[in-house]
Design a protein around this nucleic acid. Sequence first.
RNA 1: GGAUGGGUGGGUGAGUGGCUGAAACCACCGGUUUGCUAAACCGACGUACGGGGAAACUUGUACCGCGGGUUCGAAUCCCGCCCCAUCCGCCA
Length: 426
Amino acid sequence: MLQLKVIREEKTRILQGLRKRNWEGAQLKIINEILALDDQRRLNQKELDDSLAEANRLSKQIGPLMGQGKSAEAEPLKQQVAQLKEQSKQLEERQRSIETEQQELLYAVPNCPHKSVPKGKTPDDNAVYRPWPSPMPVLHEGAVPHWDLGKKYNLFDFELGVKLTGAGFPVYRGQGAKLQRALIQFFLEENIKAGYEEIMPPLLVNEDSARGTGQLPDKEAQMYACERDNFYLIPTAEVPVTNLWRGDILAEKDLPIKATAYTACFRREAGAWGAHVRGLNRLHQFDKVEIVQVEHPDNSYKAHQQMIAHVARIMKKLELPYRILLLCGGDMGFASAKTYDFEVWSAAQERWLEVSSVSNFESFQTNRMQLRFKDSNGKIQLAHTLNGSSLALPRIVAALLENHQTPEGIRIPKALWKYTGFKMIS
RNA sequence: GGAUGGGUGGGUGAGUGGCUGAAACCACCGGUUUGCUAAACCGACGUACGGGGAAACUUGUACCGCGGGUUCGAAUCCCGCCCCAUCCGCCA
């Protein structure tokens, strides 16, 4: 969530940013409501503190009096304290209700887009930040989509997944299974080479963690929940990995923290099914390697660019056509200040598929999870967090199969050979 | 699932209901001393939200797992919850 201090001090900038997210009159009023509540909160706190201070002062006099046996003199003091206490209780209740209301409003406000984020309402308004520079690949006669290739070479099986679990839970097998493992290994190794520490986190997290990265309270419907134990299956490794530092106050020299993790990801995606979800395009369970950075606010945008360059390098090694989009205000995630999407070309479906979303959240997540650092002046400030996929497997597999298919079989890019152990799927 | 013991500052760990925001030690930071390093010594050393101040800083309140209660006054007493450790059972 946005920092109160920032809303107070940079209201104009925040309002401008929210307009970029297509917020209008009524919604924008929330900002004023938050600020009005803040004035109330501060006023009320002063009153409360004064009341408590007076009660403390009087209480301190009572002890000695009782010790000296002057209970008659203590009696009126006791009554005064009792009165103050009653008053404090009311003020405290009021304070609590103000804070709750303010908190709820703050939760409803998305991150303020960076000034470089373009205006726009839908995915069509996203800017192509880096187009694919070469001509699109031309497939041979009789080329087919990945779901047919999967069947033909026995790489994955959706019917079996339905038998075991339900739709959206594919079973990978044979070279298909090994390809998954090879990609995971490849991505992790690339990330480690780039200075990321490998993390293998739990796949179930508690409520605090889900709240820390912003999955709760709003996106409850997206996560699978184990109600009995109050755990959630992670929708992305971002959740457990970022929460590793929840509540910490880091030293400035600890920054940046760079972490990578492979995990299975679980998404309910309720109601999102329909067109364009065939095959591996959209699943309830999928594999993903994630990169996360905790950065100094001064460096987070530089880090953002480095992450993009890093993901681009991996895409290149996979020999797949891709482009990078700069998302418009209307298409950005709730918590993000700036997001680049990587899209891979699916040659048989003839459309772009999102395979990575690299975002700078600035202090939106860290404010919620109180992830801070002590700067060189000894001041404590919120760190910035960034994350991105490097990469999500299913659509990469789809593109890989489709783009690299030949009449003789599917060509495996050279970078993967040492992980797959085979150069062709046939 | 059963039994027992625990949750105090970055860590270890004291704490008879008022003098405890909290001893001591370690770590960290600043300094002194010393060819260098080490050691020794001295000092500072929590967080949040308010008030005052341009700032350094100062001041109020809250916080000893969380939430309630008793009391003029709670880290300390009472109740509920959560979490952790160990042992037993089950188990890859």
